[in-house]
Amino acid sequence: MTITSPTTQGRPAAGAAGAGKTVALFSTCANDVMFPQAPMATTQLLERLGCRVVFPKKQTCCGQPLVNTGYYDETVPIVRNFAETFAEYDYVVAPSGSCVGAVRHQHQMLADHAGDAGLRRVVDGVVARTYDISEFLIDVLGVEDVGAYFPHVVTYHPTCHSMRVAHVGDRPMRLLQAVRGITIRDLPDADRCCGFGGTFSLKNPDVSVAMAADKARNVASTGAEYLVAGDNLCLLNISGVLRRQHSGILPIHIAEVLASTEEAS
């Protein structure tokens, strides 16, 4: 399936769907340091839709790299910091299905592991108000067409944790399909893992590379210019192989696609 959206002018802009809403942006630690374009795009996109975007400076990380390696005790203070940092906000939004999945699926378990009922109460509240950008746009703001323009051929990799932990479903694809000028090519074996797996890529480097090579081959077979995903570390893994192979296919976070406009291009 290839979808090409019409480049028609004058479609109604998403307008001020976010008017009156204050969003606390959780940039995620990896994006903060390594991929600032994704949270920048998220900020600009949400502001374009009328939201006020604040960045609570106390934020660090969701703790996933540690808990998924088996370090529970060490992760508890990270969970506490996350919960305290974001407790006062109605909407916590992150450009990462994986980090949102970790908050949603692991923070309560870790509060229980710490035996801290008070922390568990705070965590319960924050978890219920934490969204991946695709969920916030569709479920809270009620927009699918965010007024984006991206005249390129792309393929979309649904990252494992966005699908199977955060359960973002088809939201990212619906958002992409509404982008003007975009051509979306089906990615073969899209639902297969790219082999990143956090510390898996260091503990099992050979298997990780074998899996990444499969994914890169499938991406290259689409003939896309851009590989789009909602998680930058999966993109780093796949595009690392694509770059080594001089494929010319560029990784891009879905928030950057959605933030692109005709004026900006």
Binding site: D32, P36, V209, A212
Partner: peptide, 16 residues
Amino acid sequence: WTNARDVPIPPTESFR
């Protein structure tokens, strides 16, 4: 990590 993958250099400005 880098036996089979290239890695981009870090950006000059963090998001924060």
